[in-house]
Simulated scan of single mutants.
Amino acid sequence: MPVSALITASELRSLLDEGANVRILDVRYRLGFTDGHEQYLAGHLPGAVFADLEAELAGHGAPSEGRHPLPSDDALQSAARRWGIGQGQTVVVYDDSRSLPASRAWWALRRAGVADVRVLDGGLSVWRAEGGAIEEGEVVPAPGDVVLVSPGSADILDTAQVDGWAGVLLDARAPERFRGESEPIDPVAGHIPGARNLPIAEVLTANGRFRSPSEIEAAFEVVGAGEEVPIAAYCGSGVTAAQLALAGALIGREVTVYPGSWSAWSNTTGRPIETGAVPIEVDPLEE
Rank of each mutant, 00 (worst) to 15 (best):
A5P: 00
I251G: 06
R30L: 15
G123E: 05
V162P: 11
V255C: 06
T8H: 02
S14W: 00
G88L: 06
S103A: 10
E202V: 00
E176M: 10
G123P: 01
Y258D: 01
E65V: 01
G66I: 10
G180H: 12
P151H: 11
V149T: 12
Y234R: 08
G190T: 09
S150C: 09
G144K: 13
E254S: 11
F178V: 00
G152R: 07
E274K: 15
L120W: 08
R104W: 10
A108P: 08
T240V: 13
V229G: 03
L109M: 10
T268F: 02
A241P: 00
D73E: 12
S125Y: 05
G260S: 04
V257N: 13
P184D: 13
A174I: 05
V3M: 12
A247R: 04
A206H: 08
R271S: 06
D73C: 04
F50Q: 08
S237D: 01
E215S: 06
T240M: 08
E287M: 13
E176C: 10
R196D: 07
L244S: 04
L157H: 03
T90V: 10
A172I: 10
I216A: 06
S103R: 04
V49R: 13
D26W: 04
A105M: 07
R211T: 10
S263A: 07
A80G: 09
